[in-house]
Computed example of a mutant assay.
Amino acid sequence: MLPVPGEILVAPGQPVNALTVVGRAERPTRFRFIDVARRLGRPDIDLDEVLTVDVGDYVEANDVVASGRSSALSLRENSVKSPVAGYVMAIGPGGILLESEHTVTEIQAFVTGVVTRVIPEKGVIIETDGATIEAVCGFGGEAVGRLLRVVNSPFESMTPDDLNESASETILLGGRSIDEETLRRADEWHVHGIIVGSFPVSLLGLDPPVQVRVVATEGFGQIPMSPHTFGVLTSLSRREVSIRGQTPGLFGGKPAGPLQEPPIILAPSPLPSRGSYVGLPAAPKIEAPTAKVGSKVRVIQGQLLGASGQIDLIPPDAQATEAGIIAPGAFVKLGDGVHFIPWANLQLIE
């Protein structure tokens, strides 16, 4: 979906590939207020009497936007010129607001398929067949590329030595985890994305940031990838895959817009001939409405993996975890005390 209303560039029934641009929108990024009342020395000025422009007009730098006398007794007319080029976005009180700069945002199809529906000015729905793996967290946004496995086991972590020119413009399957040194080396090789079991929280705030998109199938920390997931992804080696690296609700509040959609891994058809796999759902998790105080739960990922206990309290707002992440969840009574655990890390015990 486009972040603001814009133009849809495809039509229903149109085939698209993952990199096809399907929508475009312009967003204002810089504004300039011209204080006409102050420039003319008339605090109670009626702008309708002096303005030479209207909302929507485009003006160049030094164009006259208003002209009038500084007082009723003045015989000389003064003019107000625009200091920059831009569009008149709004008028009043006392002046006009110019949009002096804007950026163009484009969205790509993300997957290869056929457009089945166009949502005017907002986005499209694309139908495709293939494998879908719902991940737990990630960062960087969306990426598309050929999947390349660089480790031999889901318990093995990527290292800088695993990377060379063959990794350029690919999505790497990296096993257990990744550290900053390896991530920056991948950035140097222009790797599009990386799929791992987990990654340390510290990678979320790198300065300077990297351009590599990262998706974790299990969570934060040093959790190995599920052998089943690793096997499915291995069967997709050298196929084009799409990944979305982001973590909804990371900083609290309600998800908003396309950038808050769940992290996923997609591989369009045809699928590999081995097996009959057509999709891999995430581990069963619970949401607040299905759980209540006293419910028995099991921790399915994170530092407390495998522990079980009872929900002691369900706070109405997102809370900070021990890892520094702010997320919705519950306080769970375990053997060593009460811990706040995100819903994404809990499974309801029936």
Rank of each mutant, 00 (worst) to 15 (best):
residue 67 S to Y: 02
residue 68 G to V: 08
residue 68 G to Q: 03
residue 69 R to T: 01
residue 69 R to E: 07
residue 69 R to P: 02
residue 70 S to W: 06
residue 73 L to T: 14
residue 74 S to W: 05
residue 75 L to M: 09
residue 75 L to H: 10
residue 75 L to E: 13
residue 76 R to E: 14
residue 77 E to H: 14
residue 78 N to P: 02
residue 79 S to K: 13
residue 80 V to I: 10
residue 81 K to T: 13
residue 83 P to F: 14
residue 87 Y to C: 08
residue 89 M to N: 12
residue 89 M to K: 15
residue 91 I to H: 10
residue 93 P to Y: 10
residue 93 P to V: 10
residue 94 G to C: 13
residue 94 G to S: 13
residue 98 L to I: 07
residue 98 L to W: 02
residue 100 S to R: 13
residue 102 H to A: 10
residue 102 H to V: 01
residue 102 H to Y: 12
residue 103 T to G: 10
residue 103 T to I: 11
residue 105 T to G: 03
residue 107 I to E: 06
residue 112 T to E: 09
residue 112 T to I: 01
residue 112 T to N: 01
residue 112 T to A: 08
residue 113 G to I: 00
residue 114 V to N: 09
residue 114 V to E: 03
residue 115 V to H: 04
residue 117 R to V: 00
residue 118 V to C: 03
residue 119 I to Q: 04
residue 119 I to M: 03
residue 120 P to F: 03
residue 120 P to Y: 01
residue 121 E to W: 01
residue 121 E to L: 05
residue 122 K to E: 07
residue 123 G to A: 00
residue 125 I to E: 10
residue 125 I to K: 02
residue 126 I to S: 05
residue 127 E to W: 02
residue 127 E to L: 05
residue 128 T to Y: 11
residue 129 D to G: 12
residue 134 E to K: 05
residue 134 E to W: 00
residue 136 V to N: 08
residue 136 V to R: 07
residue 137 C to S: 13
